[in-house]
Design a protein around this nucleic acid. Structure first.
Lengths: 132, 132
DNA sequence: TATAAGTGTGGAGTGCACTCCAGGGTCAAG
DNA sequence: CTTGACCCTGGAGTGCACTCCACACTTATA
């Protein structure tokens, strides 16, 4: 259990960004009894994982809205292993899709390097031949 | 050689977005003699590839500014195979890095699914154990 | 030759994801 | 009991990547 500044250090996120995520519903820290009228927020290690997953998904091009939707689904089925697995496998599918596109692009670029190194004798590699 | 609306169809990008990229210097179509005072822009198949590469890089999280910088470098060394290869390999490195992170995340998620399917006997998989 | 469809420029507006206050409360150290 | 370091909320501002006009010109079609 940690306060927001410590959580910021643990995740590498600015405090303002964390508050922004909380406002969006992406993070849901508990409220400590301390802090009087504005009770302090308390974060646990799971929140750290959640924050890291948010950032990861962002690098994959998902908007915070999409990430939130998936999170909600995840929370909704939290007590049903089947639902949980469903959501996780949806995630996996998404990531796999991105990975495939990435690999195609890598093949294309490597093909191009090889083509240049061989003195450009053959027709140039076409991006269309790879599914990116 | 095609006009902007045909190029839009070929790339799947809206015309406005294409013009936006041109204004940023990301695309550099030729100018046809047609079109009177506002000479029409002409796109060739290489421009289609360029556009597709821009979109790909965007999905990998690069800003248009970064993509532009790389493009400039590419153009600067266009007539030197060594420089061209240098830029391509920088690209490959970037992509490889993203792919590694993606694979780590996939391992994590697959591990978690396996852990749930086995009835959660062992300690839960920790995201920290994977480099994402 | 009218007219619809396409092209160009310049500039304003939009949505997203932050980022930065201002104003006010709380807590721990000295 | 003051002082400095935290914490909270609400709201304004920023940068990016579009997106949407308004207006003027050109070209293809009937």
């Amino acid at each position: 259990m940690m306060l927001i500044s410590e959580f910021a250090k643990a995740t590498g996120l600015p405090v303002d960004t964390i508050r922004f995520y909380i406002a969006k519903g992406l993070l849901r820290p508990e409220r400590s009894l301390k802090g009087g009228s504005n009770r302090y927020q308390l974060f646990n290690p799971e929140d750290v994982t959640a924050a890291r997953m948010i950032r990861l998904q962002q690098t994959l091009g998902y908007t915070l809205g999409e990430i939130l939707a998936l999170n909600e689904k995840y929370r909704a089925g939290e007590h049903s292993p089947e639902r949980t697995i469903e959501v996780l496998e949806l995630q996996i599918e998404r990531l796999q899709h991105r990975k495939d596109a990435l690999e195609a692009a890598l093949s294309f670029l490597r093909g191009k390097v090889a083509w240049i190194k061989s003195g450009k004798p053959d027709p140039a590699p076409r991006l269309d031949d790879y599914q990116c």
